[in-house]
Simulated scan of single mutants.
Amino acid sequence: MKVFLILALAIASASAGILPVHPRDRVAAPSISGRITNGKNAVADQFPYQVGLSFSSSEGGWWCGGSIIAANWVVTAAHCTDGASSVTASFGATVRTSPKFSYTISSSDFIQHKNYLSLTVRNDISLIKTPSISFSAAVNKIALPAISSSYSTYVGQTAIASGWGLTSDSATAVAKNLQFADLTVISNAECKKSFSSLIVTSRVICVASSNAISTCQGDSGGPLALDGTLIGITSFGSPDGCEVGSPAAFTRVTSYLDWIKENSGVEA
């Protein structure tokens, strides 16, 4: 009965136009890679924790982002790993096609949250185990939030999203340079004005996307960072596009600190 209830609620939400779409799944443009809409060019070594993830499956491929959290672990979104057979992970790139090094990793080294539910974007988080990464100025880990910050909402604070997602809703070209954007965290109550409360749970963190600055297709799984700490993983946005001014939503990392520790041994 519970499953049918969730499905019914989700269908009702869809009819009201409030179901989200993952940046990976946008179909307004044929390319699945690109950059953050109306962002800024990153400089070399600015985001050493940023990883480029080129996923492959029997049905094709797609581009996502990720974050280094330890010398052999990357965290990304579950909707990125879902259905993939392998990934080529690129490290230390500012120019997307020129990483310092890359690894091809089988799906057997993916740990996707077992309770990930695409329909309501629940538990949109995965881990990827990598060969040992040598840290440098260009390649390094990002800190996880402290357990003591688990109840912080971050509302009103400015965080930084980065990635190679589309530059606009009509863009088709791949970006040459890594992009970033300063985004203000909003309350979940505010975010629920654009998305169903079935979707915007306490495990989601949202940002405003004023002036058409937002995450977009190709940014999925990438980082939302605050003061050098990973607070969000790019998850979903409005089905109406990246530039419409609706909030962008992220998996709230503080809600998954125990899960990350249990599955990887990594802790703040």
Rank of each mutant, 00 (worst) to 15 (best):
F4V: 14
S15R: 07
S15V: 13
G17A: 11
I18V: 11
H22S: 12
R35G: 14
I36E: 07
I36K: 03
P48W: 04
L53A: 10
F55G: 11
E59R: 13
N72A: 01
A77W: 02
A89H: 06
A89T: 08
S90E: 00
G92A: 08
A93N: 01
R96V: 05
S98C: 07
T104F: 08
S108D: 14
Q112K: 13
S118H: 11
L119K: 11
V121Y: 09
V121P: 00
N123F: 08
I125M: 11
L127W: 00
S134W: 03
S136R: 03
A137W: 00
N140G: 14
S148R: 04
S150L: 03
Y151W: 02
Y154P: 06
A159L: 13
G165Q: 09
L166Y: 03
S170W: 07
T172F: 10
A173C: 07
L178T: 12
Q179D: 12
T184S: 13
K192V: 09
T215N: 05
G221Q: 00
L226T: 00
T229R: 07
T229N: 12
T234I: 10
T234K: 01
G237D: 00
D240K: 15
S246T: 06
P247F: 02
L257K: 12
D258Y: 06
W259R: 05
